[in-house]
Amino acid sequence: MLSASSAPVVASADTVIEVCDVRTRFGTAVVHDGVSLGVRRGEIFALAGASGCGKSTLLREIILLQRPESGSIRVFGKDVIGLSDEEALPLRRHWGVMFERGALFGALTVAENVGLPLREHTRLGDRFIDEIAAVKIALTGLPPSAGARHPAELSGGMRKRAALARAIALDPSLLFLDEPTAGLDPLSASGFDDLVRHLKDLLGLTILMITHDLDLLWRVADRVAFMVDGRIAGVGTMQELAGSELPLIREYFHGPRGRGAREQAWKRR
């Protein structure tokens, strides 16, 4: 199904995130010119598009770090725009965010980073929290020794995994990933693909990710929204998008790199 850019999203109980006609401007630069999309429960939804097309800004608006000029954003059926910090807390406890560069706290070790949300939001004992942190670190595929190290001592790939471990610390039902594979070597990146799939199945997550990694799009995403110049140019599975007639999408998916990624994905599946 390829929907037009501003078609209203059909609301249903199974829609976790609903973005409706969002418009954003920085000064005179229009970032979002009526963006609408819906993310269903239990799917991995990817937001793709060229750099600077407004993907990250949309993510920041959904997770309450920024306010759009107009439009509505509903997460778990609740309108998030203009929520106070206090009202937003229950929502924030139910989602985890992994930032592009990890955003791990440099003063804390990896284990402390992962344990921080637990210490902040639960009344669990210190030892139990340490153990859960160790479990989460193991789930993301890091070696046990990583927990005691500071983020600055980790490689880029390990830092991404540590950031993911912190994002799932509170067992969220919704996970946001901002460029999860950016800056990783192909091997680490494909390891990350598997990890995301695995965690999603295991923890029953709904995932919204931003990426322009074609491998990730082909192999992991259930549905993809393609953003061009602040509008959603198309939504659908990668198959559907690849068959799209829109020149910009064609260019994106049928360039030399796009074809390679597709062939790889076919071989693996």
């Binding site: 284990a111 160790a134 479990v135 789930l139 923890l203």
Partner: peptide, 23 residues
Amino acid sequence: SEHRALADLLATPAVAAAVAGQP
């Protein structure tokens, strides 16, 4: 069954090693 899968996962040696390996 879905809870069983989770419980089994935490029974793997990798997880045990991670928890035991806290310095």
